[in-house]
Design a protein around this nucleic acid. Structure first.
Length: 402
DNA sequence: AATCCACAGGAAGTGCTGGGCG
DNA sequence: CGCCCAGCACTTCCTGTGGATT
């Protein structure tokens, strides 16, 4: 009892945190340093909505953690406050809703209605959305975050209809804000969608190390106790994140995790060592998270690549991986999938960043992918072990491969 | 210059799940 | 209830291809 009490007391009187929330990734602060220009630009674009005009569609481009989402949410929040009910908005993350159907379902939900999450035809859902929206008599601003995920997976069908919806609306208007970190994806877009979505374009440059330091300082001031930070901590977080394309989300996460590490150790201050630990943990968790959600055969192909690299050469071709994979399947008593599918899985793993797969031609010796691991072996192994089915036999299979 | 390997990767389809609708 | 719909993991069948070797 008294132990528990002690734990709770400690949580109440943290030596590190004042307000942990301020470091969480989806927290939108009251001020966004070094993004004034973008805030003004976006504000100018959206302002006409206050007078009842439809704002231009906007296309926002910038790498991860450059403040695209934060700025958009921030400007939208201010706008909605000012609009006194004339303007409504919806925020959709297309990584979660990566099908045409789900985007529309989410839009309807944000209008306060609901729709079955499967079963209807997309056309039906679209027409319902149109009717609901028109009956609202509002200007609606729709944010499609990570829009490239939607387009790559489901095409630009919804986008096309959404950009043309205004001609079917009598009482309402709709504007789109598309956010992406992949500029190349516009190649997949129907030119009509592309020009419509790109009525206005905003670019978010990566934060510099100095800017990241600034941001971290401002946040840390309110989130953490004054003397809880060793002097090198913030510069280190900023430096690591600056190397990762100026990713502010990573910088904040590093600081948060480092502080948590320190707290768990019962330390009085966060040191650079904690940041290093945090860095390793973040990387590991990233890897484990993606592996957990993968279907069995994707895991098995990843295992095959792991085994090939651990016990053979550090660079393999599709055919060789396929053989190892078939071996693994046999040992597990599972039917293997076709090489066509394995080739696709390898591309998927490459996109997830777990491996590097590059198409190369070896002349007479064919054309294939050169494959090697991109994530740390221990993280991958741990990720694979998180699968109950694999956990039991993994050690066994690895033994056999030696 | 022609050949030919070892695949890449597109197209279309299947079987299954999980949910409509009337 | 029967039928329809979207999504997913996967198959079948296929055409395409960079460049070392012949």
């Amino acid at each position: 009892m008294s132990i528990l009490n002690e734990i709770f007391e400690k949580a109440l009187h943290s030596r590190i945190f004042i307000n942990r929330e301020l470091l969480l990734p989806d927290y939108v602060p009251d001020e966004l340093p070094h993004r004034d220009k973008q805030i003004v630009q976006l504000g100018k674009i959206l302002a006409p909505s206050l007078a009842g005009y439809r704002p231009s569609n906007v296309f926002i481009y910038g790498l991860t953690g450059t403040g695209k989402t934060a700025v958009t949410k921030y400007v939208l929040r201010k706008l909605i406050e000012k609009a006194k009910g004339k303007v409504i908005s919806a925020y959709i993350n297309c990584r979660n809703s990566d099908t045409n159907y789900r985007v529309l379902a989410d839009l309807i939900f944000s209008l306060g209605k609901s729709v079955p999450f499967t079963g209807l035809s997309t056309a039906e859902v679209f027409s319902r959305f149109k009717n609901y929206l028109d009956s609202k008599r509002k200007i609606m601003i729709v944010v499609l975050d990570e829009i490239d995920y939607l387009v790559k997976k489901s095409g630009d069908g919804v986008l096309y209809h959404l950009t043309r919806i205004n001609s079917c609306l009598k009482h309402s208007k709709l504007s789109l804000i598309g956010i992406t970190n992949d500029l190349k994806f516009t190649e997949y877009l129907d030119p009509r969608v592309k020009s419509s979505l790109g009525e206005e374009e905003l670019v978010f440059p990566p934060y510099t190390g100095k800017e990241l330091e600034d941001i971290l300082r401002i946040r840390a001031e309110k989130a953490l106790r004054k003397d809880a930070l060793a002097p090198g901590v913030i510069p280190l977080c900023a430096a690591i994140a600056a190397k990762q394309n100026g990713d502010c989300r990573l910088a904040l996460d590093l600081l948060l995790k480092a502080a948590e590490m320190a707290e768990r150790e019962d330390a009085n201050i966060v040191t650079e060592r904690h940041v290093r630990l945090a860095q390793r943990e973040i990387e590991k968790n990233l890897v484990i998270d993606v592996i957990i959600s993968m279907p069995l055969h994707v895991k098995l192909v990843l295992l095959a690549i792991y085994l090939a690299e651990a016990f053979n050469t550090p660079e393999q071709t599709t055919g060789e991986i396929f053989n190892v994979y078939k071996d693994v399947c046999r040992k597990m008593g599972v039917d293997p999938v076709t090489q066509r599918r394995v080739s696709e899985i390898i591309s998927e793993l490459d996109m997830l960043g777990l491996i590097n797969a590059k198409v190369v031609s070896m002349g007479r010796y064919g054309r294939t992918k050169k494959i090697k691991l991109a994530a740390s072996k221990t993280s991958i192994l741990e990720g694979l072990k998180s699968d109950r089915e694999l956990y039991d036999i993994l050690e066994h299979i690895i033994e056999e491969f030696k």
